[in-house]
Amino acid sequence: MNIFRFLGDLSHLASIFILLHKIQTTRSCRGISFRTQALYVVVFIARYLDLFFRYVSLYNSAMKLFFIASSCYILYLMKIRYRPTHDPSIDTFRVEYLLAPCLILALIFNYKFNFAEVLWSFSIWLEAVAILPQLFMLQRTGEAENITTHYLAALGAYRALYIPNWIYRYFTEGLVDPIAVTAGIVQTGLYLDFFYVYFTKVLQGQKFELPA
């Protein structure tokens, strides 16, 4: 475990606490894409099924359980508790256009052709693009609450921080994970436009607004 990896995980944890805080304090899931959140549940369950047959560390298992539980809880909040605050008419990204290509990528690119490894690869590709329904929604509304942008920034920073972690691991352990690295670069790339507006507007005290 190096500092980049650890900060990345902390950033991921922080993003979830920020999202929960946003939903609980505003008693609303306005501006949050249900489809993106549902994709994260698929991502975490697909990737962390190895909880049943592989033990890495207490840290690893605890984080996996937290990500599965919190993502399911967020779906519950959105679908049941604060259902009236969710507007499906602006959350329309077709997730099958993400699921199918990710499945194909996983069947082609994996480290071993077995169920668990294909599922792992699928989860890596799907995580890379799972934010698209959310970004699409943001693009449609053209603005976002500050707290929602902090959530997205923390979520984007998580995978961005994994990139120096992979560089570090290459030099210290000789470890290369081409699937995770490729998907991670794609994932971070999808945030670049968002980050630009976040740094030039939100962090300067302005409201997050996209140019019309």
């Binding site: 990896r5 190895d50 890495v56 690893n60 990500f67 480290y111 490894e117 994994y162 470890l175 995770a180």
Partner: peptide
Amino acid sequence: SDSEAHHDEL
């Protein structure tokens, strides 16, 4: 790298 090595990441 062997196929197990990447599974220590989240």
